Amino acid sequence: MRKTVTAGVLAAAVLMPLMAQTATASPPRLGECAAGELCLWEKGNFKGARRTHELSGTDIESCVLLPPGTTAQALANRTGRPVTTYQSAECEETGEFETYPGGGTWVPQSPYQVRAFKVWER
């Protein structure tokens, strides 16, 4: 019986500080993006100017260009549909591109400068 109590006390002594650290550590901060939106930030880690796009103002499977001279480094896809981001400003697949699921994908740092995107039918 004594070994069990000692092991339990020892485990509590080790685990309690770890649990306290975990409870006080804040999770990574995500950018604000409402349900039904695609949000794009000009800088990584959801910083800088944010552009939002909703399905009501976006044609499905059409290439949507970011305004000339602007790019995005971070994004959140909360549209409920897959979204492909493109390095190319014409949605060409000759440059980098990536498709993100629409159920709530948060990308703090795109591997390339996003210049255009397409929203797909499910």
Rank of each mutant, 00 (worst) to 15 (best):
R115M: 11
Q109Y: 15
P67D: 10
P82A: 05
G48H: 01
T24V: 14
E98D: 08
Q113D: 02
S26W: 00
L40P: 03
R29A: 14
E121M: 11
E32W: 09
P27G: 11
R115H: 12
T99Y: 05
S62Q: 10
P27K: 12
V114Q: 06
A25I: 11
N45V: 07
L18I: 11
A7Q: 09
E54G: 09
R81D: 01
G44F: 09
N45W: 08
W41C: 05
R51Y: 02
T99R: 02
N77P: 03
D59R: 02
K47A: 14
T6W: 14
E93G: 00
T58I: 07
A34D: 12
L15A: 12
T94K: 14
V83E: 03
A11Q: 10
L38S: 03
G8A: 13
A35L: 08
R29G: 02
T22K: 12
G102K: 04
A89W: 01
R78D: 04
G57W: 04
G48W: 07
P111V: 07
H53I: 03
V9M: 15
R29S: 11
N77M: 05
P101E: 11
T94C: 03
A76M: 00
A11R: 08
V107F: 02
T52E: 04
F97G: 03
Q87F: 04
L18Y: 07
G8W: 07
M1T: 07
G57R: 09
T94G: 07
E93P: 03
T99G: 04
P111D: 03
V114L: 04
P108W: 02
L40A: 05
F97M: 10
T24P: 06
A72H: 02
T79G: 01
A25V: 09
A89N: 11
A35M: 10
L30S: 12
A74P: 01
N45L: 13
P82Q: 10
Y100L: 08
C63H: 07
K43S: 11
C39G: 05
G69Q: 04
V64E: 03
D59L: 13
E32V: 08
T52M: 08
E42D: 08
R122H: 15
R122F: 14
P28I: 14
Y86V: 01
T84Y: 04
V5A: 09
A11G: 05
C33Q: 06
L66Q: 03
W41N: 06
T4K: 13
G95E: 13
N45Q: 13
Q109V: 15
G8R: 11
F46W: 15
